[in-house]
């Protein structure tokens, strides 16, 4: 599956990475070769094979519905770039 610069630009936008055309051209080359390597997967006959998401065949453990956390807002917000009145600040979101 060949990679186009537009694929890179699209992925960069979805992943919220700033990317100009010059960067994109460099990535097309790198990513194209990585994908060519990855494309070898298509050679494998996986007919009737179930996908494996986790290396162990275990199942989800459930947690009791209990409140175990206390308010640590000030502690957690010490590492935040911008807060005011307990809220995280971001540039205005237009809805």
């Amino acid at each position: 599956m060949a990679l186009e610069p537009s694929d890179v630009m699209r992925a960069a936008h979805l992943a919220r990475l700033a990317m100009n055309d010059v960067d994109a051209a460099g990535y097309v080359d790198d990513l194209g070769r990585i994908l060519a390597m990855v494309d070898q997967l298509q050679e494998v006959d996986t007919h009737g094979v179930a996908p494996l998401a986790h290396p162990l065949d275990s199942t989800q453990r459930l947690r009791a519905d209990e409140v175990t956390e206390r308010d640590q807002r000030d502690h957690f917000q010490r590492v935040a770039p911008a807060v005011e009145n307990g809220l995280y600040l971001v540039p205005r979101v237009v809805e």
Partner: peptide, 28 residues
């Protein structure tokens, strides 16, 4: 680079050929 590869292979139209196939190969 890896974020872009991952974003690309998970996107619509590529997911089955890449991700699902890779998970099948993982089982093998």
């Amino acid at each position: 680079r890896r974020i872009l590869i991952g974003t690309h292979t998970l996107s619509e139209g590529f997911f089955d050929a890449y991700y699902t196939q890779a998970q099948k190969v993982r089982r093998l």
